[in-house]
Structures are given as C-alpha cells and as structure tokens.
Computed example of a mutant assay.
Amino acid sequence: MSSYSYGRELRLLTPAHFNSVFQGKPIRVGSSHLTLLATPNNLPHPRLGFAVSKKSAKLAVQRNRIKRVIRDSFRLNQHHLPNVDIVVIGKAGVGTLAKPELQQLVKQLWPRLKKRCRTSQ
C-alpha cells in the first residue's frame, strides 16, 4: 500500500536543493497566483519546496495557510507526479484566496505539471 506521508525526504531543505531548481531551465507551470518550477531529480520520488514571500502574502498566517494547503495537496498527489524537485512561488494576491479557491488552483496545476514534464523529456 502506498504511503501518503510527507516526510523529510519529500522536502527541499537546503539552499543547494533550491539552487538546483532555479539554475538551468526549469519546467514552468503557472497561474495568476502561483508558479511551479520543476527540474528532474535522480530520486525515486518528487520533492517540494516553497518561496512564498511577504510581498505575495502580507501576514504570516496567510503564508502558512498557503503552504499548508499546497503541502496537503502534494502529499495526496505525490504518487501521480514524476520524479522532480518542485518549488512553489507565490505571486502577489495569493494571500487573498480562500482555502477552497487555493485547493482548486493547486488541484489544476498538478496535472499540468505532470503533462509538461512528460513532454519535456
């Protein structure tokens, strides 16, 4: 049975991990509120990191809610995603989205990312 946990091995933890995504030509999937950058990794699973700034969501409560919703969605969809390192970048106004709107947005971005990764190989 597949595990739906979100353990340490599924996170981008160090600046080197983030730099590996930002350097080169990452696969980019975006909307008006979020951008996902992804690069292939040599691991048997995808990893996730966040770059949600005060500019995109003023209050810490908003930034934490955004990260919590995306983390939960990633946790449930991790087995359907390719083996890539993903950085989620928040754009201006993402902090104003309600939780259901944010969930729907992220739900739409995962299949687009999967499709883009397939076509770039």
Rank of each mutant, 00 (worst) to 15 (best):
K91C: 07
R68L: 13
L13E: 11
K114W: 03
I66M: 03
R8Y: 10
S20Q: 12
H79Y: 06
Q78V: 07
V61H: 14
V29D: 01
I89Q: 06
G95N: 03
K107G: 09
G30L: 05
V61Y: 03
T35I: 15
L12M: 07
H33Q: 15
P100F: 11
L59T: 14
S56T: 14
P111F: 03
M1I: 08
D85L: 06
G30K: 10
H80Y: 10
S20W: 09
T96I: 12
N41K: 01
Q104T: 14
L43W: 02
D85E: 04
I66K: 04
Q62V: 03
L113A: 01
K58H: 14
G30I: 03
K99G: 10
L10P: 02
M1V: 13
L12I: 11
V52T: 03
E101F: 07
I86D: 01
V61M: 08
T96Q: 14
Q108R: 10
G7C: 12
P40F: 15
T119I: 12
I27T: 11
R116F: 10
Q121T: 09
L34E: 12
L48F: 00
V29R: 00
L37W: 12
H45Q: 13
G7L: 11
P44Q: 07
S32F: 00
V29W: 01
H17G: 15
S2H: 08
Y4W: 06
